[in-house]
């Protein structure tokens, strides 16, 4: 994975595209996460140049991984590329969930704070430790219904508190510049930093974030959330897509490229029965998240 990280950094730089390697080996090199093995490499790219980076990587044999077409609460925020001979995938983020300011504003703030970090014998560009801890924090917080993410967030908070290059005031400054004052609250609380006031400009984004961060059944909640945000006239077609997805989407979702018509039918029925069973819980999660959002 560090090799792939160095590769993307090299390709971006050679094309004059601003990109920051995030999470993974860089986070480990900065002392913010123990070494671990992951199946993907994450890069935050200048939103205006993201298509150019995809194009440059396609020239090296990387291809878009088709998605399963299921709506997620947070919308699309990254494109995933895969290569037939590399064992990892590349996630190219044009925005990062939890930063509620416009993507270009967020990128400029993080880019201003860039440093170089030694990865795979190279100096790759990455956010400084304070900015990187904000990114990692948001990554864990958006899935805080998972106990694993809670453990990871606790470990991050401990690393941040002990890090010689991170001040609590840095975290607040970054959060205020990127619209992450409220979304980063769980990290602020763990580090013992006073939570800044929420920015009223980002109320709608905050509502979406809270739905994601407090839900446990994200696929059902994702569909339900998408449904409530669609105009009435478009809801039947969305509902049909949720209940009876296209063959291509199912094959991608279940990683069964050669599934027969009969197997697809079985997958559809299983999915439908699971979806119907999960609906009451998803509706409760959605109501609860929205109540929570109004209280903050």
């Amino acid at each position: 994975m560090p090799l792939a990280c160095a590769l993307v950094d090299h390709v971006a730089r050679s094309q004059g595209i601003r990109a920051l390697c995030v999470k993974g080996p860089v986070l480990t090199a900065q002392g913010l996460r123990p070494a671990y093995s992951s199946g993907d490499v994450d890069v935050l790219v200048d939103p205006a140049r993201a298509p150019d980076l995809v194009h440059a990587l396609r020239d090296r044999g990387w291809e878009h991984r088709p998605d399963d077409a299921a709506p997620s609460v947070l919308g699309e925020f990254a494109g995933t590329l895969r290569h037939p001979t590399w064992p990892c995938e590349l996630d190219l983020h044009h925005r990062f969930p939890g930063f509620l300011a416009p993507p270009e504003v967020v990128f400029e703030e993080l880019w201003e704070r860039r440093v170089t970090v030694r990865v795979a014998g190279r100096s790759v560009q990455a956010p400084d430790p304070a900015a990187h801890s904000v990114i990692a924090g948001l990554n864990y917080i958006r899935d805080l219904a998972s106990q694993d993410r809670v453990v990871e967030l606790d470990a991050l908070a401990a690393a941040v508190a002990a890090h010689p290059e991170i001040e609590g005031t840095d975290l607040v400054t970054i959060a205020e510049a990127t619209g992450a004052e409220t979304t980063l609250r769980p990290l602020f609380q763990r580090v013992g930093v006073d939570v800044p006031d929420r920015d009223p400009r980002y109320a709608d984004g905050l509502d979406t974030w809270l739905v994601q961060a407090t839900s446990t059944s994200s696929t059902s909640v994702g569909w339900l959330y998408a449904l409530t945000r669609e105009p009435w006239r478009r809801r039947p077609s969305l509902l049909w897509r949720a209940a009876w997805p296209a063959a291509g989407s199912l094959r991608v979702k279940h990683d069964r490229p050669d599934a027969s018509t009969r197997e697809l039918l079985a997958l559809r029925w299983r999915r439908l029965s699971r979806g119907v069973a999960a609906l009451p819980g998803a509706a409760r999660a959605l109501r609860s998240a929205r109540r929570d959002g109004r209280r903050r």
């Binding site: 160095a6 590769l7 090299h10 090296r60 044999g61 001979t85 795979a120 014998g121 190279r122």
Partner: peptide, 27 residues
């Protein structure tokens, strides 16, 4: 020394080395 366009990792007694300057190169 490793060339300016080489990236490398060393794990578990093995090394993987890649020429970043060659678009078709594999580790």
């Amino acid at each position: 020394l490793p060339s300016r366009e080489a990236a490398y990792v060393q794990i578990d007694g093995r090394a993987a080395v890649l020429d970043l300057g060659d678009p078709s190169a594999l580790p």
